[in-house]
Amino acid sequence: MNLGFSLYPDAHSLETMTEYIERLTRYPFRRVFLSLLQLDTTDDAMMAKYQAIIQLCRSKNLFVVADINQQLIQQLGWQNQLVTAGKAFGLDGLRLDEPLETQAMIEVINNPHHFKIELNISQANQLLEYLLKNGARKDNIIGCHNFYPKRFTGLSYPHFVETTQTYKDNEILTAAFISATSASDGPWPVSEGLPTLENHRDMASTSQLKEYIYQYLIDDVIISNQFVSDEELADLMTVLSSEKLLDIETLDDLTEAEAKVLAFDHHYRNDISEYVLRSTMTRVVYHEEDFPAREQSKAVKRGDILIDNNEYGRYKGELQIALKDFEVSDKTNIVGWIKPTDLPLLAYIKPNDAFRLLRSGHEKQVDH
């Protein structure tokens, strides 16, 4: 998976934007999203600033795509030279926020310059199927979802899957947006987060990224808002470079043995239970450790993390994650739970997958 970032230079100096780009290129970003929709095309100084920023990004080997629509094309006078004008502006591709007339789109897509035309995946997928059936060159097409600044307007998960799957089935590169929590700058005054999926709006950016990685539907993930902190970027890089991760909270009185089990490199057994996800190697590695029984409620909720205690004999030290609500015996300890923002990601941990549990700190015990 490639990562990208978004730039909104309008209210910021070229120096500020240059410093931000230089900082982000210390990380393995591969592409840049620019929105031209809000531009005043009569502002020559602003247009020159955009071109300077695009040139800088290209010099850093970043793939730059700009968002346009019919109205902007007319304002720029690019109607009859969309590809050559886009290339002259310094771009690698143009994202059509709204479709052009279909024959015109096919002609633009079939350009000989390998200039990419990015379609809006969030709209109905019949357009892509029509273009391909009528001779559009698949190798010049890429796809990218919208982001949604207004709360409750982001994509539903079923619509996201349906529209994206059409692009995946046709082996066309897909992209979607995540919203950084340390950044708030976007293209419009309204910004209640800038996610593609509505259920991502209040998630940590790391959880949003994990879901896209574990789905295998999105090729490029773009941070939609601007001026992301180095701390948040470092967290995102950890997600990008690791096996499947689940952020967890734990009891505040973990034993040393329980902490070792939680920190283990886990593997989901491939003989599936409907009640628990099992990681059994911990009972082999830590079979000589002490796992005393805990006096606690044994009512288990989905996402709870369980470790079998000394009373379970050969099973002691085995880790499980609850897949449904049920009740365990006194031979099993409840030692933690998946954070609510990461709980939906449990569905993406499949048999034979490697995964890790990341503790957020020593949390206070709660009544289960």
Rank of each mutant, 00 (worst) to 15 (best):
Ile349Phe: 10
Glu19Gln: 14
Thr181Asn: 09
Ile73His: 08
Phe63Tyr: 15
Asp230Gly: 01
Leu262Arg: 00
Asp304Ala: 01
Ile21Gly: 05
Thr164Leu: 07
Thr164Glu: 08
Leu173Ile: 10
Ala234Trp: 07
Ala263Pro: 07
Thr238Pro: 10
Leu209Thr: 06
Leu240Arg: 15
Ile178Leu: 12
Val261Tyr: 05
Asp219Ile: 02
Glu19Lys: 10
Ser273Lys: 05
Leu209Ala: 03
Asp367Gly: 06
Ala124Val: 08
Tyr50Gln: 00
Leu194Ser: 09
Arg356Gly: 12
Asp10Ile: 07
Ile248Tyr: 04
Met46Ser: 11
Asp67Gly: 08
Pro149Asp: 15
Ile178Asn: 13
Phe264Asp: 03
Tyr148Met: 04
Lys210Asp: 13
Asp330Leu: 13
Phe29Met: 07
Glu243Gln: 11
Glu15Arg: 14
Met281Ala: 14
Thr153Glu: 03
Lys298Phe: 14
Leu91Trp: 12
Gly186Ser: 12
His200Asp: 10
Ser35Lys: 05
Leu357Gln: 05
Ile68Asp: 10
Leu7Pro: 00
Pro187Ile: 03
Leu262Cys: 04
Asp43His: 14
Pro28Asn: 14
Glu211Arg: 14
Thr206Asn: 08
Gln81Trp: 02
Glu295Pro: 14
Gln165His: 02
Ile54Leu: 04
Gly143Tyr: 00
Ala11Phe: 09
Lys316Asn: 08
Thr18His: 09
Val300Arg: 13
Leu323Pro: 02
Ile117Thr: 10
Leu319Ile: 02
Leu246Ser: 03
Ala259Phe: 03
Met17Leu: 11
Leu251Gly: 01
Tyr20Arg: 03
Tyr315Pro: 00
Pro149Gln: 01
Val83Arg: 02
His266Glu: 02
Asp40Ala: 10
Thr163Trp: 11
Lys49Glu: 08
Tyr315Ala: 09
Met1Phe: 15
Glu327Met: 01
Pro99Trp: 01
Ile54Trp: 03
Gly77Lys: 06
Glu289His: 15
Thr206Lys: 07
Leu251Tyr: 11
Glu211Lys: 11
Cys57Thr: 12
Leu34Asn: 01
Leu306Asn: 06
Ala263His: 02
Ala88Phe: 04
Met237Leu: 13
Leu56Val: 12
Phe115Ala: 01
Ala180Ile: 01
Lys210Gln: 15
Asp202Phe: 11
Leu94Gly: 05
Asp325Trp: 12
Ser242Glu: 09
Asp271Met: 07
Lys133Trp: 04
Glu19Val: 03
Glu101Cys: 04
Leu245His: 03
Glu162Pro: 00
Ile349Thr: 13
Ile53Tyr: 02
Asp330Phe: 14
Lys87Trp: 15
Glu243Phe: 02
His12Trp: 10
Ser179Ala: 07
Lys168Asn: 08
Tyr130Asp: 07
Thr250Leu: 15
Thr41Leu: 02
Gln74Tyr: 13
His266Gly: 07
Asn2Arg: 12
Ser297Leu: 13
Tyr50Ala: 00
Leu236Arg: 06
Met17Ser: 06
